[in-house]
Nucleic acid binder design. Structure first.
Lengths: 354, 354
DNA sequence: CGGAGTTACTATACCGATATAGTCATTGAG
DNA sequence: CTCAATGACTATATCGGTATAGTAACTCCG
């Protein structure tokens, strides 16, 4: 049996195909009576409704937006910060009826989602901007929103004030009296171990901003931190880095971490080495991951409102799509959300040295 | 400037549109030399590649599969079990180059993702099968895979052996010597409080299977549990239910919980009421959420391999899509993955009563 | 009673590709 | 030397809709 299309129904009812289309998509264009008859016939023929692909082609809109996630999607789902972000996007998008399509930046031979999947716009989340996937999205001239990336002119962006947040974290330690402060960072793909040029070798925008913020406060206090790149994120996140720092001849009394997950690993490692946190070692995280509250000691960290970031991103994207559709030309906005230092129990003045 | 299409390039190079199409989609159909010239011209004109929507219409395939999630997508992202599942799907799908589109079952006026978004197939995850969204997917005759749902003939399904798992959990308590065992379940939307007919009122397939499993073991031991439906999942998950059970005149010495998250709430509540776990109250969860290991005491629970479930689901779906495409007609498979009781520190023999 | 304004449809022209069946040289085998 | 088999393109026919501009019959109003 051949497939049922608008034409099938049109022939059956004896009207034009366009009228059947209107029965489904623009009910005000025909009489209720005829519409009823058409829907009835459609039902009888087992018609499901206008074919999404055909409609997408004709209308030029697909009803789905993409999110480009750098690394394997797998990782995006194990990171509580990322899932919160995605959840907020989904929530913000729900009332619009748009679906959310996950795009991985890793490309397969012959299939590049960023190039080959139909969508009305996309969020680019914490991706290296020089990824080919991002290039494809740009070339398609899709409405885009950059999140946690360096803002470029012409593309709306959502960022948090990473630098100020990091600065306040470092400042907090300085004010507690610490002078030996080191740093554990996370740059996907970077060689683990001590990093000579933390600013230059920062891979992500966020990574760079946080380093800049930490150094703002530390350098002002005349402190030069040792910066260590974590080992693979899954092997106890931060434990090897912590060990390296704590086994120096002149170990730090405080450690600043790129994330709460990392901080968790650092705290655990310190404790397993017999160091009391915060009495002998202070640790500060970043993000205010739910984990930060659950930990013992509860973690001092820099809060970012991930959900707000997600909502803002989704809103910016829908606005951008709308703008393109209506030909309107509002200004491109770059949003910078605030961060806030949350002082809990993982920081204290340094131990007395005599 | 008009949009660049295959035709634009064809005119420019002086070949037929079909040849340009082949240059992009079937390189073996033309000489390398001509192909080079075409790609060059395409580049010069700023052509991005075949339009995904047009291609989807012509080819009948979109390069994306959907996942239908019952409740607000928001919830799906806060639940560690669900995110693990999604991550595993994403991972399994990655090598195929297919994108993953999230569909919420909640419909908006005028826009029903399950009906209106183009896709090649879909996973239906723990949805009430009588949702209209599921109906739309079925009517579209899309390749589907049901996960954590009652298996229906003709549609591949992936389930875990919830019943056997629940049975072993209950059996474990019975063998420890417990005789007063109660249950906390979770049925989205169901009225909280004591449930008279736990099997009949179970809303989800999973919920029903677990109740059946618990009762298998309990009834065999002559035990009739009180079954309580949790309050809203976000308010401390399980704490109100636990309070209700523990403040009975004849309180239980052990509680079986629908999930680890619920069990976590129950344990916390018990502890706050001054009950030692497991000395005075044993608690068993379900899922083996990472949380189960982190808790103190570590939770005795029934492990399901969520990642394996996700991988199996994705594999079944791609297989199903492939089958439709090639017209092949392999048998529909119903997979039942095993569960395993993991005994940790939240269960012990009941306190001695004299 | 004439002309402007609805209402309810229809005709035509795309949307931007791909599949399939040619066409026309070339090449190789018998 | 002839005929079948390749190789490299092209012509034509969809894929299943939607936008836009008609058209014909009716309504309203002064």
């Amino acid at each position: 049996m051949a497939r049922v299309t608008l034409q099938t129904i049109a022939d059956r009812v004896g009207v034009s195909r366009m009228t059947v289309s209107n029965a489904f998509s623009r009910p005000d264009q025909l009489s209720a009576q005829l519409r009823g008859k058409i829907l009835e016939a459609a039902e009888a023929l087992g018609y499901v409704g206008p074919d999404p692909s055909a409609r997408a082609l004709a209308r030029g809109t697909t009803g789905a937006v993409g999110v480009l996630l750098t690394d394997s999607l797998r990782d995006a789902f194990t990171d509580e910060v990322a899932t919160t972000f995605l959840g907020a996007i989904a929530e913000e998008l729900a009332p619009t009826g748009m679906a959310l399509t996950l795009l991985s930046a890793t490309e397969q031979p012959g299939m590049i989602p960023a190039r080959d999947v139909a969508m009305d716009g996309a969020l680019v989340y914490s991706c290296n901007t020089h990824t080919t996937a991002v290039d494809w999205l740009k070339r398609r001239k899709l409405p885009l929103v950059f999140v946690d990336q360096v803002a470029v002119p012409g593309i709306p962006s959502i960022n948090i004030d990473d630098r100020a947040g990091a600065r306040s974290a470092a400042q907090h330690l300085v004010e507690l009296g610490h002078r030996r402060i080191d740093i554990v960072t996370s740059n996907p793909g970077l060689e683990p171990g001590v990093i000579a040029d933390p600013i230059g070798s920062a891979i992500s925008h966020v990574g760079r901003q946080r380093v800049l913020g930490w150094l703002d406060a530390l350098e002002a206090a005349g402190i030069t931190p040792t910066v260590v790149q974590e080992w693979r994120p899954d092997d106890g996140g931060g434990s090897q880095a912590a060990r390296l720092l704590l086994e120096q001849t002149d170990p730090p009394t405080a450690i600043l971490c790129f994330s709460d997950v990392l901080a968790f690993g650092v705290v655990q490692t310190a404790q397993s080495l017999g160091l009391a946190v915060p009495q002998q070692l202070s640790v500060v995280g970043f993000d205010d991951n739910p984990l930060a509250q659950r930990m013992r000691p509860a973690l001092t960290t820099v809060r970012q409102d991930v959900a707000a970031k997600g909502r803002a991103a989704a809103a910016a994207l829908t606005a951008s799509i709308e703008r393109v559709k209506t030909g309107g030309t509002g200004r491109v906005r770059h949003v910078l959300l605030p961060t806030e230092l949350i002082i809990r129990n993982s920081t204290a003045p340094p131990p007395e040295t005599h």
